[in-house]
Design a protein around this nucleic acid. Structure first.
Length: 887
RNA sequence: GGGCGGUUAGCUCAGUUGGUCAGAGCGUCUCGUUUACACCGAGAAGGUCACUGGUUCGAGCCCAGUACCGCCCACCA
């Protein structure tokens, strides 16, 4: 089927088969391009299902739709994966070198991209594959260069020495978002620093100041000890100096308000190059900032024996040596928060580095304005608070990565240290400041944070910065759909960069889905071994079932547990629809030729059942439209499940069967019934297509079409919504309630299900005709034969043992027992008694409500009228039940 | 330390303008006749909608507070 779609050229916005309506506004969806690091998981499948649902719906409404597929180079994630593979081959980043490493990466990516794209196609994603884009392709590369240069020219990108988050495992800096705060129990050591004698300048054996630290190895980088300015305990020591052990550095005791007197000893060692607070303190006091850790987080440049030791090895050694000197004053267990690398889980070290940053405050302000002023809407709404909070407390974004796989930062440095940022593919011709030739310039070895290029995705994929036709037509885009877990990483960056660089919000709606969890509610992860492979699921249950299950269980922004039961529900549903189709196709009256064109059945030939079937299909259309408009896709599938199964199959088809089989009716009537079934099925199949594209396309192929229908359902027109027929809905509703009540009575009385019993019904006057017309259907569905519809309850035949049915609408019935089973009525008495108790309860409540003057005064008239009706119905029902029980 | 979300039938969850809203699927218990479907059909049992107050004629639905659970953000050594 997917091949037929492709052959018909329906995926492109203006594909030959896509049939966009002239003048219709384009609909563009932004999907997160999956990482090229491996294969897709259920989260991707959910994303793709939801996105494809929106795209298919838009396409069916005649809009030119752009669903642009893509892949993200995922620099750090990809490197972590490749490094692991290389390790298995006995190689490493270092052993290969930059060039060969990148070649190896290209081969790796080539292999995984085919896997990923295959999975997306398998799912039925109706993307325009001819536009497949990659965040590392030439167009993206140009967008990255131009974006960066623009930001630089506007003073929004700057290079500075600052404390960055350094991951020793990945050997790169990472952004604040990639540092995961992890609560851990550590140790807080108290360490004595010896105060210097003011005259000799030598440390005093007996005068010390005790500092508290969780990282003793950073002692080697200490350049001060700080106390609170108003701390009486240390006032006398202010201005004195202490000697830092091992490095034998003499440093001042300074006063700074950052110190919390109540914490630890109230004195804190200051390591400006390896701690954020200390760095600030160091800047305030003009302290030296020696770096004592190398890229691998081993001690370096201290001139001590600890050099080259790993940070934790050094920590133990230093503690032991301090203890030997008698300078460890104590240690206590300490609950603290450690920053760990999102990718490698290594403890991140703050380090001083000269790197590139994006000034985020002005960008964030614009993004906030966009959501506050409603130009971009976030669904579900409550994420706006999270959004607000993050964007109002945002810090500058470190975009330099000391990795190889990614976009090289287009900044060149001349021997004099001048910076030249260029967006030219070949780099600058000369230093922007001193004019030195390109040969003397050296390009920054670093690459960009992978999210920098992802942040340009909505427009870089359309050809920006060039003024392409695609940019003009499809930008800004319509809906950005993704999981809420990357709202900061990706969504916020797209908004910030998009508004700054293009002057307009990149999309009008941000639709955030929840995460897929395993049946126990745990996050799926490879280490837990609870990851589900979408391909395996599809092999077992089909792509349609997977899509339905993923969409059915979801509420916007909320996680869902996913397991086999949900899949089974979906698969059964597809099966049900398939079987219903088989029935409809097989029930074609002989008077209709197999290839007959589909007529609009004439109103005169429609009976109540046919009108009801149409009405319910209309109701389903309205419900689906509502769900789609609100991004409540779970509501869409619920409406379809209910409409197709509980209404169309359970009642529509069953009621229609009677007329189809009735040879006494004119052929036109039976034909109208069949065409009505076809029509309803057609509507349901169209409505369901965005969720379950494959079965519906297959069913559609087998259905008779209208003259203006296209070959393929994927581009068939979305059903027009019209109001349900309230009168027929109410009437058939009564019939259904009656049949259920008759079945109920039969079951509770233990009358064999297969037995035909004589039934007398006295429907309310308004429904008498309808019951008369539907008598054959009631007969069949309630197994009531003969069935007599009488004008009043008084005429009901009620021999001994009759089963009684009393409905709220004023309807009564009797089921006459077989002669051999006169006790049936007695067995059924309990049911009637229970019904009486329930009805009385409801009646009491209704009366109490109406007795309340403030209710009748203040409630809307329609509500009061409804309550009156209900009271009347209940009163009648209670009376009749009492009579029946009394007789 | 802030913020957000959740708490509805044994399980998984719907319930968006407060007025038949107490629901669905699975599971459980009965029973299966009518050739679309046993991946099915019919019937049934099962909930003081976490708790406490408040607003209202009326509250799963709005407000305040409490208790658990989960998530996000957070540079206190």
């Amino acid at each position: 089927i997917a091949e037929r779609w492709a052959a018909a050229d329906v995926f492109a916005p203006d594909g030959a088969g896509a049939r966009p309506e002239a003048g219709a506004e384009p609909f563009t969806i932004i999907q997160p391009p999956p990482n090229v690091t491996g294969s897709l998981h259920l989260g991707h499948a959910q994303r793709a299902a939801v996105e494809d649902l929106m795209i298919r719906h838009a396409r069916m409404t005649g809009r030119p739709t752009l669903f642009l597929p893509g892949l993200d180079h995922a620099s750090i994630a990809a490197q972590v994966v490749l490094d692991r593979i290389l390790a298995g081959e006995g190689e490493s980043r270092a052993s290969l070198g930059r060039e060969r490493y990148l070649e190896r990466m290209a081969r790796f990516v080539e292999a995984t991209r085919d896997v990923i794209l295959g999975q997306e196609r398998h799912l039925g994603a109706s993307a325009d594959w001819s536009r497949l884009r990659f965040t590392m392709d030439d167009v993206s590369a140009k967008a990255v260069r131009v974006a960066f240069k623009t930001l630089y020219d506007r003073g929004l990108a700057y290079r500075t020495e600052a404390l960055v988050n350094w991951c020793p495992g990945c050997r790169t800096s990472v952004s604040d978002l990639e540092v995961i705060s992890t609560p851990e129990t550590g140790t807080l050591w108290s360490i004595r620093y010896h105060v210097l004698d003011e005259t000799s300048g030598e440390p005093l054996a007996d005068q010390t100041i005790t500092v508290a630290t969780t990282r003793p190895e950073t002692i080697l980088g200490d350049t001060a000890v700080a106390v609170h300015p108003e701390d009486e305990r240390y006032r006398a020591l202010l201005g004195r100096r202490v000697r830092i052990p091992f490095v034998e550095r003499d440093v001042p005791i300074i006063a700074d308000e950052v110190v919390d007197r109540a914490f630890g000893t109230g004195a804190v060692k200051i390591t400006p190059a390896h701690d954020h607070d200390d760095h600030e303190t160091g800047l305030r006091h003009g302290l030296a900032m020696p770096t004592i850790l190398d890229d691998a987080a081993a001690i370096a440049n201290t001139g001590t024996p600890y050099d080259a030791m790993d940070r934790y090895v050094a920590r133990r050694a230093i503690l032991a040596d301090l203890a030997a000197r008698g300078d460890v004053a104590g240690e206590t267990e300490h609950e603290m928060v450690l920053g760990r690398c999102q990718r490698s889980d290594d403890v991140v070290e703050p380090r001083l580095k000269t790197q590139w940053f994006i000034r985020t405050e002005p960008l964030a302000a614009k993004a906030l304005a966009a959501t506050r002023e409603g130009r971009t809407r976030i669904v579900p709404e409550h994420f706006e608070k999270t959004w607000e909070h993050w964007l109002t407390t945002i810090r500058d974004w470190n975009v330099s990565r000391q990795l190889w796989w990614g976009h090289r930062i287009p900044a060149w440095y001349c021997p004099d240290g001048h910076v030249t940022v260029s967006d030219a593919a070949g780099g600058p011709d000369a230093c922007a400041e001193c004019g030195r030739g390109a040969a003397e310039l050296r390009q920054d070895p670093d690459i960009f944070d992978t999210w920098f290029s992802s942040g340009l995705w909505p427009f870089s994929t359309l050809g920006w910065p060039d003024e392409t036709a695609d940019v003009r037509r499809f930008y800004p885009t319509s809906v950005m759909e993704t999981g809420y877990d990357i709202i900061f990483f990706w969504v916020a960056r797209m908004m910030m960069l998009g508004i700054e660089l293009t002057g307009i919000e990149p999309f009008h709606t941000v639709s955030l889905s929840g995460l897929i969890r395993d049946p126990l509610g745990q996050k799926m992860s490879k280490t837990k071994g609870n990851v589900v492979d979408p391909l395996a699921v599809m092999a077992e249950s089909g792509a349609d079932a997977l899509r339905f299950a993923l969409i059915h269980g979801a509420t916007p922004g909320h996680d869902q547990r996913f397991g086999p039961q949900k899949l089974e529900l979906a698969r059964n549903f597809a099966n049900k629809l398939w079987n219903a189709t088989r029935f409809v196709l097989g029930a074609r009256p002989g008077s209709i030729a197999a290839a007959a064109p589909r007529p609009e059945p004439a109103d005169v030939d429609l009976g109540p059942v046919e009108r009801w079937i149409r009405s319910r299909a209309a109701a389903a259309t309205a419900a689906v439209d509502r769900g789609l408009a609100d991004y409540q896709f779970g509501e869409v599938t619920r409406a379809l499940y209910e409409g197709i199964w509980s209404e169309f199959c359970d009642w529509g088809i069953e009621l229609a069967k009677v007329r189809l089989a009735d040879e006494s009716l004119p052929a036109a009537s039976r034909e109208a019934t069949w065409w009505t079934l076809v029509d309803a099925l057609d509507t349901y199949v169209r409505l369901l297509h965005p969720v379950m594209p494959f079965v519906t396309e297959a069913i559609w192929e087998a259905l008779p079409h209208r003259v203006d229908d296209p070959e393929l359902l994927i581009v068939a027109r979305w059903p027009r919504s019209h109001a349900p027929d309230a009168a027929i809905d109410r009437g058939i509703g009564e019939v259904i309630d009656t049949i259920v009540a008759l079945r109920n009575a039969r079951a509770t009385a233990d009358v064999p299900a297969g037995a035909w019993l004589e039934v007398h019904l006295a429907p309310p006057a308004a429904s008498r005709d309808l019951f008369g017309q539907l008598a054959p259907a009631i007969e069949r569905l309630a197994r009531a034969r003969p069935l007599r519809v009488t004008d009043s309850a008084a005429e009901l035949a009620r021999p001994a043992g009759a089963l009684d049915v009393v409905l709220p609408g004023g309807l009564e019935g009797s089921i006459l027992p077989a002669a051999a089973d006169v006790d049936a009525g007695a067995r059924d008495r309990a049911r009637l008694e229970k019904e009486l108790v329930e009805a009385e309860g409801h009646l009491d409540a209704a009366r109490a409500r109406l007795a309340n003057a403030s209710f009748t005064d203040k409630a809307p008239p329609a509500v009061v009228a409804g309550a009156r009706d209900r009271e009347r119905e209940l009163t009648a029902q209670v009376e009749r039940l009492r009579e029946r029980l009394a007789s």
